[in-house]
Design a protein around this nucleic acid. Structure first.
Lengths: 139, 139
DNA sequence: ATATTTGCAAAGCCTTTGCAGGGGA
DNA sequence: TCCCCTGCAAAGGCTTTGCAAATAT
């Protein structure tokens, strides 16, 4: 099976259409970039990448595109406590994040690494659980 | 044993001094308010409360005071995905939060409601785990 | 007397929005 | 042709900061 990390531009284009999104050049490029990286890029990261690898893309388009993609569920928007900037994640599989408090870097942790059992009080209907591990990583 | 919800102003004053914080009138008032409420107030909430219950307090002082208090660990600063505003929590006991996705309200869930076992990959040194439950609450 | 805190206003950071021009369906 | 998308610049929301006046030690 093909990993999202190896997707072609052509395949990303198809993916967008499947989600009812018009596949403009900018959207394909941004979506492809986010899907094929594990770095949880911020808007600025994506803009910096675009400035190097795309003819012309405005910051507003980067914002709008990332929000659009997150809105239709092709990617996910993330917020972390150490920064006000939004991060974007192309990995929709079961995983959560580890934040290195020294470097600010974000690492992926497989969902299987965490086993939990939740017993909410009466009246609470759970739709989703969010986890964040914080600490230090010695690479 | 005394709950933080019943703390007197005098006791809050002592608490601040214990933390090496000069106990100004504004700081005592803000700290007392946050410690004796369960509503996870935002800066605006605290400002609104102050406007009604304190002779005069500027917005900057509210910001600075809340940050100071969070910095010394008397209260905790919280960020939630549905809003950019910081929330403040006077409850330092073992608990996590439930976010009602319809109303934006935040509820406290006892830490004991969640049992978990975490097995991080090599090299990750955990300092703290953060949990957020999301869904709906039928009061 | 000296150091700290407050208040005000300005500025900062990140993000969204209005509108005009351009490109794709 | 028509509608959607893009780019630019302006504006918006939340927070921080510089500085002078007021206050506490």
């Amino acid at each position: 099976m093909k990993s999202r990390l190896n997707l072609t531009l052509r395949e990303v284009e198809a993916l967008l259409k499947e989600h009812g999104v018009q596949a403009s050049a900018q959207r394909i490029a941004v979506c492809h970039y986010v899907l094929t990286t594990n770095t949880h890029p911020t808007v600025d990261d994506v803009k910096a990448w675009a400035d190097e690898n795309f003819p012309k893309m405005s910051l507003a388009t980067v914002y709008n595109t990332l929000n659009l993609l997150a809105g239709v569920g092709v990617i996910k928007a993330l917020k972390f406590p150490h920064s006000d900037k939004a991060h974007f994640d192309g990995d929709l599989s079961n995983h959560f994040h580890f934040l290195d408090e020294d470097t600010g870097k974000i690492y992926d942790i497989p969902g299987e690494s965490l086993k939990y059992q939740l017993d909410l009080p009466e009246g609470f209907e759970l739709s989703e659980m969010e986890f964040l591990a914080k600490g230090k990583f010695q690479g």
